[in-house]
Simulated scan of single mutants.
Amino acid sequence: MGKISSYRDLKVWQLAIDISVASYEVTKNLPREEMYGLTSQIRRSSASVAANIAEGYGRENKGSFVQFLRIAQGSLKELETHLIIAGRVGLIHSTILSELLKQCDENGKMLGALIRTVQRKKVDEQVRG
């Protein structure tokens, strides 16, 4: 793994961006009457995942970073819920939905692992300090 010098180097952020781009693509095909409903909710929650990772990283404080990573997890679960609803009402094809949910699951696991890593480093520093 290379040196992390920016949130843009984080694989978890990169995948969140990919999911957001895919979410924007899939919502292009939703009916116009969903513009202020599911389309807006899917786009907003998908963008929020990557944005919270970046914002937390930018705080340069491990406690704040963990807090924003947890907010990103919440946004990811919100996105999954909106996608599932869109799938159940027939707005998103099941194959596309399945792939997006698979990516969300992977991103969620990555977020959880990053939270544990950051928390461990914080504790290690407190013990040494």
Score class of each variant (00 low, 15 high):
Leu91Lys: 07
Lys109His: 09
Ser75Ile: 04
Arg88Phe: 04
Gly87Glu: 13
Asp9Asn: 06
Val118Tyr: 08
Leu76Lys: 11
Ala72Gly: 07
Gly112Asp: 07
Glu80Tyr: 01
Asp9Gln: 07
Ile4Asn: 00
Leu97Gly: 01
Cys104Arg: 10
Lys122Thr: 09
Asp124Gly: 02
Gly87Met: 13
Gln119Trp: 00
Arg70Thr: 13
Val12Thr: 09
Gln119Asn: 09
Leu15Lys: 10
Leu100Ile: 06
Ile92Lys: 02
Tyr36Val: 02
Asp18Asn: 10
Leu69Pro: 10
Thr117Cys: 04
Leu79Glu: 02
Glu34Asn: 03
Ala50Ser: 14
Thr117Asn: 14
Val89Ser: 10
Leu83Asp: 08
Asn107Arg: 11
Gln119Glu: 15
Leu100Gln: 10
Glu34Pro: 03
Gln119Asp: 10
Ile84Met: 15
Gly87Thr: 11
Ile17Tyr: 04
Leu30His: 05
Thr27Arg: 02
Ile53Met: 07
Ile85Thr: 14
Thr39Ser: 14
Val66Ala: 02
Met110Trp: 06
Glu99Asn: 12
Ser45Asp: 01
Tyr36Ile: 00
Asn61Tyr: 14
Ala54Asp: 04
Val89Trp: 05
Asp124Cys: 02
Val89His: 00
Pro31Gly: 03
Leu15Asn: 11
Leu101Trp: 12
Gly2Trp: 01
Ile42Thr: 09
Ile42Val: 15
Ala113His: 14
Gly90Ser: 11
Glu60Ser: 09
Gly87Ile: 05
Ile53Ala: 09
Gln103Pro: 03
Arg8Val: 01
Asn107Pro: 09
Gly2Lys: 11
Leu79Cys: 05
Leu76Tyr: 05
Gln126Tyr: 10
Val26Phe: 03
Leu101Gln: 15
Leu111Cys: 08
Asn61Met: 07
Ser48Gly: 11
Asp18Cys: 01
Glu78Trp: 00
Leu101Ile: 14
Val26Lys: 05
Thr27Trp: 10
Ile53Glu: 04
Asn107Ala: 15
Arg120Asp: 10
Val49Lys: 05
Leu10Glu: 03
Ile71Asn: 13
Arg44Leu: 05
Glu60Asp: 08
Gly56Leu: 08
Asn29His: 15
Lys62Gln: 12
Thr81Tyr: 05
Ile85Leu: 15
Arg116Ile: 00
Gln67Glu: 08
Glu33Lys: 10
Ile19Tyr: 01
Gly108Ser: 11
Lys11Glu: 15
Ile42Trp: 07
Leu100His: 06
Gly2His: 10
Glu33Ala: 00
Ser98Thr: 07
Ala16Glu: 06
Ile4Leu: 09
Tyr36Ser: 03
Ser45Lys: 00
Arg43Gln: 11
Leu83Tyr: 11
Trp13His: 08
Ser45Phe: 00
Val12Trp: 06
Gly129Trp: 01
Lys102His: 13
Val127Leu: 14
Lys102Val: 09
Ile92His: 01
Gly74Val: 04
Ser98His: 11
Ser75Tyr: 05
Arg59Trp: 09
Ile4Pro: 01
Ile17Gly: 01
Leu38His: 01
Tyr57Gln: 00
Thr117Met: 14
Leu91Ile: 00
Ser46Tyr: 02
Asn52Met: 08
Glu106Tyr: 12
Val89Asp: 07
Ser94Pro: 12
Asn29Ser: 15
Tyr36Pro: 03
Asn29Phe: 13
Gln103Met: 15
Arg59Asp: 13
Ile71Pro: 05
Ile115Ala: 06
Leu15Trp: 12
